[in-house]
């Protein structure tokens, strides 16, 4: 009798403590979510603000309006529509070329065994340690000599020429596909070319989606190369650089709310794409890194 009461009070105490802990966790999580969401909500609210300038001391817009979104595509200083189109074109071509390259290189390194494989892997590792834009002045010189300076083609080349180096994640994925599949196909007389197209690629949809999405998103968010390559040629800007220019000192008062509208327009599709690929993202980062 005493034993059971003791037991139940202990259980009750345990349950109460557990509940208290959970409540504390809920509170911490809620506060954190507020902190994390606040800047984004602020951005969205600003994009509907009718008052110009950015020194508003109010959280909610003074005057709700959709005008900023209209002004974004229709103003005399910036050509956001053009930038959007530029970025879309660059992103599509970069996506196609880079995805192909990455799949080709990772398949070669993952499934094929050849003499200089290790050498290539090590060279890739070493090249990856140079700061990405260290040689951008030289790259720009090359583009000038090729007559491609300040052009979108130059951007596509810069983004996709180095794609071969980004093989780790896809290679990590290919490594997990059982080798027995290859062996079986080989016995049936399939060439390595056929194995790649008929067996490996259909099994690799997740990694193809992941690679395509990351390479597609890249040009939307790169600021460094566009800034250095395009200089003052507004017609070939991409959205990242264009938005950055909007909040430079001489424009920020006039265009602050327009900038917010532009940021929302860009952020929505990318956010959706990212949420789609997040499950591949985790597997990619950890799986690929461990295997090296």
């Amino acid at each position: 009798m005493t034993n059971t009461t003791q037991g139940s009070t202990m259980k009750e105490g345990y349950a109460a403590r557990k509940k208290a802990v959970n409540v504390a966790v809920y509170i911490i999580l809620s506060v954190m979510v507020l902190i994390w969401i606040f800047p984004i909500v602020w951005l969205i609210l600003r994009s509907f603000e009718g008052e110009k300038g950015m020194s508003s001391s109010h959280f909610l817009p003074q005057k709700w309006t959709f005008g900023n979104y209209i002004k974004l595509f229709n103003n005399e200083d910036f050509m956001f529509g053009q930038w959007f189109l530029n970025t879309l074109i660059v992103a599509i071509f970069t996506c196609i070329i880079s995805t192909l390259f990455i799949l080709m290189v990772s398949y070669a390194f993952s499934r094929l065994r050849f003499k200089s494989r290790k050498t290539f892997l090590n060279i890739g590792l070493i090249l990856g340690m140079f700061p990405g834009f260290m040689s951008m002045a030289a790259t720009y010189n090359i583009m000038e000599i090729l007559g491609l300076g300040k052009s979108l083609v130059a951007l596509v080349i810069v983004y996709s020429a180095g794609a071969g180096l980004g093989y780790q994640v896809a290679k990590g994925f290919f490594d997990t596909i059982p080798r027995s599949l290859d062996e079986a196909a080989k016995i049936d007389g399939a060439t390595r070319n056929q194995i790649f197209w008929i067996i490996i690629l259909p099994l690799s949809k997740p990694i193809i989606v992941y690679t395509a999405l990351t390479t597609f998103i890249g040009p939307w968010t790169d600021y460094i190369f566009v800034d250095y390559f395009m200089k003052d040629n507004q017609e070939t800007y991409t959205v990242a650089l264009g938005l950055y220019k909007m909040i430079e000192k001489e424009f920020v008062t006039e265009y602050f709310t327009t900038f917010c509208a532009g940021a929302v327009v860009i952020a929505i599709p990318i956010t959706i794409l990212f949420v789609i690929m997040q499950r591949f993202y985790v597997a990619g980062v950890t799986g690929g890194a461990v295997k090296g």
Partner: peptide, 16 residues
């Protein structure tokens, strides 16, 4: 909620 904040392009969040 947290993934959404990670998903917004970095240059946008940093400029905000």
């Amino acid at each position: 909620m947290f993934v959404i904040t990670a998903a917004v392009p970095q240059f946008v969040t940093l400029l905000i």
